[in-house]
Design a protein around this nucleic acid. Structure first.
Length: 432
DNA sequence: TCTGGGGTCCTAGGACCC
DNA sequence: TCTGGGGTCCTAGGACCC
């Protein structure tokens, strides 16, 4: 059996932990730059607000219903996520952190420890996560990951289930499949949903009754075949446990839409440098070095300008590295190749790829020397300071602001940002 | 004026090799 | 004049996820 724990309206829930007066109120959290809605409280959903709605479009609705609007605060969400995941890893042997607010649990053999079945286990787990972190969750338990996702959805949709849905029998599985529309299945997006509807397949039960050949033909080959098997109750995906409670990625990206379009080289260099530094930190945090660096610049796709909206340069690094200064040097080279004086860029980013564990590169005599011990120590100290005092406390000169500037030219609005209650000393909540 | 920022996996096709 | 049948590696692009 697999369990799926999913935090309800995660970003809004994180904010509510520190502002209980928001309980029961309509609340939304906006993306970077206060661009679109990325988290909604149940009350906000009831007003018809959708995920991804641009803020400027729904502003009248927000004002009319006095919705609390918050800018996103990733330092807070990341920290709350770590607390939830840490607790889960204490009570189940294997946890796969699937995203900032979701985790799969391996529950094979766990029935033995819970006389009253995994249903009781799930309910206890849910209550404990809430008690220890303040974050409400829903739990789905089923024989496959895809069914656990589906169960979780049902638990979330019908309050009568008390936040837990356990698909332990074939009969319950069949019932569950009938409740869910095909577009709400994990792995069925807009394209596939349209295709399936045109074939008369509208529910999860319909899809579970399809042949493997049909799934293979219309749903992306083996992926589709696996999906159908999983709906039928045959596991095709195992659990990929997250070591030491963190998520390691195969590629890393740091990118932002700017607060306003930028054209000047120094402004863009400042942005790219900041992104490269940040990406380097992520890289060191997961103990890797990168072989490839992609730098991209994008223009607005909403204006008059024709495509292409984005251009990029990929650099193959002579030696895989995670050294900030070295990566900054390459980022500058890439940017020089890309930048065109008369363009108005609205977004940029740095992608690190071809990751391998740091420090395993073999060097021959005539290749560039390895990064010195000194530099490795410097990076470690940089990371330690930033971890201790908050991201961006210590930065390298190229990614710094000009004198007297509050914000870098590329940084956007975050009008309604709440404090970093849990990760910055000066933002600690004072009680008394 | 204002439209997020991350990721994953798979497939097809071309270059190249024996 | 004949013009196989495998492999591998890489890239671009599509679909999906939160």
């Amino acid at each position: 059996m697999f369990g799926l724990v999913d935090c309800n309206n995660f970003y809004v829930s994180c904010e509510r932990v520190f502002q209980p007066r928001l309980d029961g109120q309509p609340v939304v959290v906006l993306s970077n730059n206060d661009g679109c809605i990325i988290s909604r409280s149940t009350e906000a959903k009831a007003l018809g607000l959708q995920m991804g709605d641009p803020y400027f479009q729904v502003k009248p609705v927000l004002e009319q219903h006095q919705v609390t609007v918050l800018s996103s605060n990733y330092a807070l969400y990341g920290d709350m996520s770590r607390r939830v995941m840490w607790y889960l890893s204490q009570v189940t042997p294997e946890v796969e952190i699937y995203s900032i607010d979701e985790a799969f649990l391996d529950l094979h053999g766990m029935e033995r420890f819970f006389v009253q079945s995994l249903d009781t286990f799930a309910r206890t787990l849910r209550a404990n996560v809430l008690a220890r972190t303040g974050i409400p969750t829903c739990v789905g338990v089923a024989p496959t990951k895809t069914l656990a996702k589906l169960a979780n959805r049902l638990a979330k949709k019908s309050p009568a289930m008390g936040g837990v849905c356990y698909l332990d029998t074939d009969e319950r599985r069949r019932w569950a499949l009938e409740q869910v529309a095909v577009e709400d299945i994990w792995g069925i997006g807009r394209q596939y949903a349209t295709k399936l509807y045109s074939m008369g397949i509208t529910t999860a039960a319909d899809l579970a009754g399809c042949s493997e050949a049909l799934a293979r033909k219309h749903l992306g080959g083996v992926v589709g075949a696996r999906l159908v098997r999983e709906l039928q109750g045959f596991p095709c995906q195992g659990l990929a446990p997250s070591e030491d409670g963190t998520l390691s990625r195969r590629t890393l990206c740091c990118s932002r839409t700017f607060g306003k379009p930028l054209s000047d080289f120094p402004d863009l260099l400042g942005a790219i440098s900041a992104f490269a530094s940040r990406a380097a930190e992520k890289l060191r945090r997961q103990g890797d070095a990168a072989h490839y660096m992609t730098v991209f610049l994008s223009k607005s796709r909403y204006g008059m300008e024709p495509p292409p909206y984005s251009c990029s340069v990929v650099l193959t690094l002579p030696v895989a590295t995670n050294d900030t200064l070295e990566l900054l040097r390459y980022a500058r080279v890439a940017l020089k190749r890309l930048w065109q004086a008369d363009s108005r860029y609205t977004k940029a980013g740095v992608v690190l790829d071809g990751l391998e564990p740091a420090g395993q590169t073999q060097l021959t005599l005539f290749e560039a020397g390895p990064v010195s011990e000194k530099r490795i120590r410097l990076m470690a100290e940089l990371d330690a300071l930033n971890r201790r005092f908050g991201n961006g406390t210590v930065r390298l000169a190229t990614s710094m602001l000009g004198r007297g500037e509050q914000r870098a030219p590329w940084e956007g609005q975050a009008q309604w940002r709440t404090p970093a209650y849990t990760t910055r000393l000066e933002d600690l909540l004072l009680v008394g």
